[in-house]
Amino acid sequence: MSELMEHFSNLLADEEQINAQIAIAMKQICESARIGRSEFESTFTGITYATWRNYLNPAYKNSRSVAVLAALSWYTGVSMNSFYLGEKLCAFLGVSQEGLRLLTLISQLHDESFEIACQMAFGLIDEDKKDLVRESYLKARLLHREIAGICRFPRPLDLNSFSQDYKRSCAVGICRLQNKLGYSDAQMADILGVSEHRYIRLSDPEDELPIPVFVAVRFKVKFQLKETSFILDDMSEYPDFAHLRRFQDARDRIIRPLLEHLSSEAAARLHRALLNLFW
């Protein structure tokens, strides 16, 4: 079992722990991406700022919709897996707080801007370390070209509409996996740790009951799924997000080595330069 999957497994037993860890990571990522109230309200509709603040509060015990995490992932460019890392976010990603700020900045860029940022990061790495990341640097640029220009965040994003489309697609994907495995509703409910009635609602594409993050974590771990983007194949209103999701994790793994090999001084210089150029 990978270290990441082991981390997810350790969260399974306690829904409150999952919610708390999600909140910690969300808050760190939002702070790194400079998402305050005005930024939030101009970026998302269909959710109040008070509800949003609850999502960022580890003490908030109610369930959090995985669709909201998906929307934030789309806006920040940071992969959804990152939101499950909680207080171990920076350690698992292998970046400092400054590196996390750079990751969110670079991940939000598109097209030529992304390539410029990668070139700048590579150029600031010490000469004796460049060979360690040269391959990652080239792969990052090639991979981004596959999604450039077709996965832009539709600001402002209507979270009600997005959540419904996300839920419908997830429900179809879950049912598809259930049929493939030949499991009953009762078996699926037991695996995901919910009642059979709740599972039937969660797996119904026409039922708007949101999928909570603890179910998403259990779905990934219990079925040993390294890749879960297939459940977004049926997104019809926001297919760009489904397309982006297929590349997010890979792009994260490629960008991070560039950031890991930057000195503190170089990281600070890059951060200032990106802000001056693109914000």
Rank of each mutant, 00 (worst) to 15 (best):
K27Q: 09
L157A: 03
L181V: 10
W74E: 02
V66C: 13
M235Y: 01
S113K: 13
N57G: 02
Q97T: 13
E31C: 09
K129Y: 08
D234F: 11
N10V: 11
L11V: 01
I106A: 02
F44Y: 07
A70E: 05
I18L: 05
F8W: 11
P239D: 08
A268T: 13
A148G: 14
R141H: 12
Q164C: 10
I29Q: 05
V95T: 03
Q119E: 11
F40Y: 03
G123T: 12
L244E: 11
L11E: 05
C30P: 12
R34Q: 12
L109F: 06
I150S: 10
G193T: 02
C90I: 11
A20S: 07
Y199K: 02
S236C: 13
L202M: 03
L72W: 00
Q224L: 11
R64C: 02
A186E: 14
D185C: 02
L232Q: 01
D190Y: 06
S63R: 01
A268I: 12
S9H: 12
Q248W: 12
A266F: 00
Y137F: 05
D165A: 00
D185R: 00
T51P: 09
E227M: 07
P205R: 03
S203I: 09
L159N: 04
S263F: 02
L259F: 08
L85G: 02
H110I: 11
V215N: 00
C30T: 12
T43C: 06
A70F: 01
I254T: 15
V221H: 12
E146N: 14
V194R: 00
G193P: 06
C151D: 11
L274Q: 09
L56E: 05
I211S: 00
R37Q: 12
P156F: 03
R176K: 10
L12A: 06
R253P: 13
W52I: 04
S169H: 03
S73Q: 04
A171I: 00
R201P: 09
L103V: 03
D249V: 15
G149N: 06
F92S: 05
L225T: 02
A189M: 12
R201L: 12
S96M: 06
M5H: 11
S163E: 06
A117I: 05
I18Y: 05
F153N: 08
S32W: 14
A121Y: 03
R272W: 13
A67Y: 00
A91P: 09
S184F: 01
K27H: 07
L100H: 05
E227I: 08
K139Y: 10
T43H: 11
E146H: 12
E127W: 08
K130D: 05
L138G: 07
D14C: 08
L85I: 07
R155M: 15
R145T: 10
E196D: 09
K129A: 10
E98T: 14
D14M: 04
E196S: 03
Y60S: 02
N62A: 09
L275V: 13
A171R: 00
C151K: 01
N57V: 00
A20F: 08
A91I: 14
L192E: 04
S9G: 13
F219D: 07
R53E: 14
R34F: 10
W74A: 06
A23N: 04
S184M: 04
I200G: 01
E3C: 14
E3F: 12
E208D: 13
E227K: 07
D204Y: 10
D234A: 09
L132K: 13
H243W: 14
A91H: 13
T104N: 07
L69V: 04
F241N: 07
P257Y: 01
E15V: 00
